[in-house]
């Protein structure tokens, strides 16, 4: 027993060393798979032309009278994320009540709801977009549906956590005065959770605008479509202006949404 006193103080140190060495080995093993084949043959030239393109963005592309320009692409991206968030903000409400432990008597009900939400959450939206493209054809509508369904996973989880945290006083008061289940929901639960719901929907909107920029890479509309064309034709000045447009759009949306969220809560 006496010997265990000094060794127990040294034990965490040894454990940390082992964990550290394991991590380094893991990292080295991972890095060994990244084959760096140089910047290909005309590397310096390619780099120079990329630099040239990024420092001289294609300003003419911002607005073209005949369409297919930057502003219209960004507008479509914005619309996809607005509609996707809108759809999921309503679709996720039943899921949220399903998954909240204080809304059902049995643990199994809320547990199964939470599991379904986890599965939806880890299902990548890009794959969701491809499935919807098969259903409704390529275009912005497929992107809207993909975002709408994918966002349910996260939004319903946040919503259900809000529902689980509601103050029980009003609920009990309504139940004891003989209110029906629906009336309890409408007058005791909803007034408490709606501001938080709107705030989370806005937060999800910020995430969705980023997702909507990449949906185009698989053909689901938005600014990703022209970006893919510009990348494959090595039109670096156009890539530069599109990335600039994405950065500006996302920054503006973040600012507006952050301001709204501070006002709501």
């Amino acid at each position: 027993m006496n010997q265990s006193v000094p060794s127990s103080s040294r034990l965490p140190l040894i454990r940390n060393w082992i964990v550290g060495i394991l991590l380094i080995v893991l990292f080295g093993w991972s890095l060994s798979a990244m084959k760096f084949e140089g910047i290909q043959e005309y590397g310096a030239q390619v780099m120079a032309s990329i630099w040239e393109g990024f420092t001289h963005p294609d300003w003419d592309y911002v607005y073209l009278p005949e369409g297919e320009d930057l502003l219209r692409g960004l507008l479509e991206t914005l619309i996809i994320s607005i509609l996707g968030t809108f759809i999921s903000a309503f679709l996720c409400i039943p899921f949220a009540f399903w998954a909240s432990s204080n809304m059902s008597r049995f643990q199994a009900v809320s547990g199964s709801g939470k599991f379904v939400l986890t599965v939806i959450r880890v299902f990548p939206e890009i794959i969701m977009a491809i499935l919807f493209i098969v259903a409704v054809g390529p275009g912005a509508f497929a992107g809207v549906l993909a975002l709408g369904v994918h966002s349910i996973g996260m939004l319903a989880k946040l919503y259900s956590e809000t529902i689980e945290a509601v103050d029980n006083g009003p609920r009990e008061a309504l139940i004891s005065s003989g209110a029906s289940k629906l009336q309890v929901l409408r007058f005791a639960v909803l007034p408490q959770v709606i501001p938080q719901f709107i705030s989370y929907a806005l937060y999800r909107f910020e995430i969705n605008i980023r997702s909507a920029t990449v949906l185009g890479l698989v053909g689901a509309g938005g600014i990703g479509v022209p970006l893919l064309f510009a990348l494959s034709s090595r039109n670096w000045s156009r890539v530069g202006i599109i990335l600039l447009g994405v950065v500006i759009l996302v920054t503006i949306i973040d600012l507006i949404s952050g301001w709204l969220r501070r006002r709501i809560i």
């Binding site: 084949e37 920029t213 494959s232």
Partner: peptide, 15 residues
């Protein structure tokens, strides 16, 4: 502000 897939698309074009 730049999503990971956009970074990836650019880096694939470069490297």
């Amino acid at each position: 502000t730049i999503p990971d897939l956009l970074f990836a698309a650019v880096f694939v074009a470069v490297f």
